[in-house]
């Protein structure tokens, strides 16, 4: 089964998403920071990355997405964040600065999350 890497500093959220993805039969790897996320990405070779924006630094998710695309540009990234609600900021994908395939706002319904993951895997 495809492997999904979840990177988010909210450990409860990571657990919840991991349960949803594992229930759907996916393998799951997790990380709670950008640095560990990069290490696990290199070790586990995931097929999709689910990535938060604000972690230790407010822009960690954007930076990690840029770094991931330098290593394996073919791995799709689903950016899942509540940054808009927390800060009032309006972000979306951008080829250079926010190089992700899908940009979704938290909270997300499990059905929608699984649908988006399936779309990314079928691309």
């Amino acid at each position: 089964m495809p492997k999904i890497l979840i990177v988010d500093d909210d450990q409860d959220f990571v657990s919840a998403v991991a349960i949803v993805l594992e229930s759907a039969g996916y393998q799951v790897a997790t990380a709670y920071s950008r640095d560990t996320g990069m290490q696990i990405f290199n070790q586990e070779n995931p097929d999709v990355v689910v990535l938060d924006v604000m972690m230790q630094e407010p822009d960690d998710g954007f930076v990690m997405a840029q770094d991931l695309k330098k290593i394996r540009p073919e791995v799709p990234i689903l950016m899942l964040t509540s940054v808009g609600q927390v800060t009032g900021m309006d972000f979306d994908k951008d080829e250079d600065l926010v190089p992700v395939e899908v940009f979704e706002q938290k909270p997300i319904m499990p059905g929608r999350l699984l649908e988006r993951i399936r779309e990314l895997l079928n691309k």
Partner: peptide
């Protein structure tokens, strides 16, 4: 980075 990523 945040200003660059913001949509406007």
């Amino acid at each position: 980075q945040l200003a660059g990523a913001a949509q406007s």
